[in-house]
Design a protein around this nucleic acid. Sequence first.
DNA 1: CATTGTTATGTAAGCGCTTACAAAAAGTTG
DNA 2: CAACTTTTTGTAAGCGCTTACATAACAATG
Lengths: 349, 349
Amino acid sequence: MAKASRKVTILDVAAEAGVSSGTVSRVLNNDAHVRPETRQRVLEAMERLGFVANRQARSLAGGKTNTIGVLVPDLGTGYIGEIIRGIDAELSFHGLDLVLYTTHRTASKEANYVANLASGMVDGLLLVLPRNPADYVGNLTQRKFPFVLIDHQGTGRDCPAVGATNWQGAYDATEYLIKLGHKRIGFITGSMDLGCAVDRLAGYRAALRTYHIPEDPDLIYEGTFFQPDGYAGACAFLDLPHPPTAIFASNDVMAMGVMDAVRNRGLRIPDDISVIGFDDIPQAALVRPALTTVQQPLENMGRVATQMLLDLLQQPGREVGRIELPTKLILRESCRPPRDASESSRPAL
Amino acid sequence: MAKASRKVTILDVAAEAGVSSGTVSRVLNNDAHVRPETRQRVLEAMERLGFVANRQARSLAGGKTNTIGVLVPDLGTGYIGEIIRGIDAELSFHGLDLVLYTTHRTASKEANYVANLASGMVDGLLLVLPRNPADYVGNLTQRKFPFVLIDHQGTGRDCPAVGATNWQGAYDATEYLIKLGHKRIGFITGSMDLGCAVDRLAGYRAALRTYHIPEDPDLIYEGTFFQPDGYAGACAFLDLPHPPTAIFASNDVMAMGVMDAVRNRGLRIPDDISVIGFDDIPQAALVRPALTTVQQPLENMGRVATQMLLDLLQQPGREVGRIELPTKLILRESCRPPRDASESSRPAL
DNA sequence: CATTGTTATGTAAGCGCTTACAAAAAGTTG
DNA sequence: CAACTTTTTGTAAGCGCTTACATAACAATG
C-alpha cells in the first residue's frame, strides 16, 4: 500500500471511491451536503491511497492560505519566545500554520515584509514589538487586512493591539520603592522608540509626581533593554555625588546588569541598593537575591493577540481596540527600605 | 499610483508592458531568454502596478514552495531560540521562508507533520531534537526528500545531521571537576530517548573511568531537560549519606534548578557545591554565580544544518553524513575545588 | 400519483503562475 | 541573397483544488 506521496490527487481519490472530484473536495472541506455513506467511502479511499491535500492548491483555489505571518524583531530571548509560544499554541489549536519572519529590528525590512505578506501570502499578521507601525497601519486598516500589534503603543490611531499595563506596572514598582522610603530612585529606560519603554518611563514619572518627589534628570538613564546598559546605567548613578538608594530597570535583563555593577562596587543588594526589574523572565527568580520585578503575562499576550486576530479573520474590518493585560508586582528579595530611612521620613499613607 | 494589492496578476503586467504573460513570468524568474529592453519594460510595469507575485500559484505551478519547514519540540527556551536564529539567518540570506511547527514533544505529531510537510508543502525539513526519526528517515531518504536532523543521534543509519560533540563536552566538564579535586560528582541526565542525553551520560562515565573513579548509581539521576528535574535531582543527591561535592546537569535549565535546590538547603555555590550545566544558553551568564557550562554552538548549528539542507536541495539524493560542531567548556563562577580537598588528593597530571 | 421542495452529486471554469513547444525575429555564414 | 542557426516571444495546457450552477435523486404533501 502506497504511503503519502505527491502523486495522489483528488482525482485519484475520486476514481478510487467512484465519485467526482467535487465530492472529494466536499468531504475534504466537511461540506454538509454529502451523504454519510459517501463520505465514509471517500475517507477510506483517502486512507488507502495515502492522500494528503496540497496546501498551495487549496490556498490558490480557495483564496485562503490558512497561514498567519508573525514578525518579530529577533529571536533567542526568552521574552519573544514566550510570546511566540502563546501564539503557536493558539494557531495550532485552530489548525493554522505559523510563518516566522525576523525583521532584525529594521524598520524598512519590517515595512517590506508587511507589504509582501499582506498581498495574499498570509491570511493575517501578528506584529511583535513593531518598530514603525505608523508606516503601514493606515494602509492595512483601509484594506481591511487583519493584523494585531503586540506590545506596542504610539501609532496615533486606535488599532488592534495587545499589550500589558506598562504604565501601571512601572507606577506600581516606583510606588513600592517610595513606600519603602526611597526618595532617590534611579530609572533605566528601554529603547525609547518603543512604546512600552515610553510607558514605563511615564509610569515612573507619574509615581514620583504623586508622592511629590522631584524628578532628577541625573536619575534617568536611557538604555536599550540590553544587559550592558543596565550595568552602565548603574555605574553612572553610583558615580553621582548623591547616588540613588534604589534602581528600577525597564527590564529584568538590564536589572541583572545593575546587580552586577552594584556588586562590583562592593555594595550589597538590597542592603545598600534596592533593585527592581520588569518582565519576570524565568531567571528573575533564580538570581540571588531573587529579583523583585513587574510580571508581564507574555505567553498570554501571545494567546490573546491570536484570538483577537482570529476574530478579525471572521469579521474583516470589525472595529477592535487595544487590550491591555495586567502586569503584577512580584515581590522577592531585592528590595528593602533605604539605609538612612526612618519612620518619620515615610510618606503619609 | 496603486500599491500592492491582490488584484494585480501577471496578466495585468503583461497588458501594461505589451508582452505576453509568458514573458512576464520569464522576467519574474530571471530567465536568460529575455531581451534587456523587454525586461526593463516589464519591470517598470510591475513597479507601476505594484505587482507582487502570488506564492501559492508559483509553488503550485512550479512545483517548488521556496519554504523550509522547521520542526521543534517546543518554544520559549533559549536553546531552541538560538538554533532557530541561526536557521532564520541562513534562510533569509537565501530568500527562503521559514514555516515553524511545534511538535509538543509528541512522536506521533512529529511523524504526522513530517508526512504532511514532505508532500509538497515545503521544499525541505529541518528537524530539531527529533523524537523518533527512525519512524520516517528511511521513507524520506528513499524518496530523496531533503532533510537534516539537528542535535540528534541514534537512528541506526547514517543520514544528514548536525550535532555537537556531546560526549566530548561532557567528558571535558567531568574531567574539569575531577581535576578540581571532586571525587563525588552527581550527574543529572536529559531525556534518555534523545541521543544527546545518552552521549552526555557516556562522556561523564568515560571521564570517571579515565580517572579511576568508581561510578556510583546513586549519583546519576534521570531527568528530562526541564528545570524541576534539576531541582529534584539535586535534592535526591543532597539527601544521600555521602552527598556529592559537585553536580553536573545535562543542560543549563536543569543546572539552574540545581542552584535553586542547593540554596534552599542553605548551601552556597560554589563554596559548598560546584555546579556545571550544558548548552551555554544566554541566561547561563546572567545567573549568579555565573554558570560554568559546556557551550554548544547553537546558532552555528542552525546555520550549518541549513547550509547542509540547501546543498541537498541542489543535489537531491546526495550522500551526506553527520557533522559535529565542537563544544567548549566555558569557565565561570559556579565551580571551585571541594571544601575537603587538599593538594595531596589531586589526581596526578 | 403528480407536484413541489430539499438534498446530494456531477461538471467545468478558474484561482495565478509555470513551462514545453511552436512560431517569429534576429544573427551568422558561404 | 539564401540557408541555417540562435535567440526571443507567444500560446496554451496544466499544476491541484474550490465552488457556482445544473442535474439527478430523494422526500414530503395534497
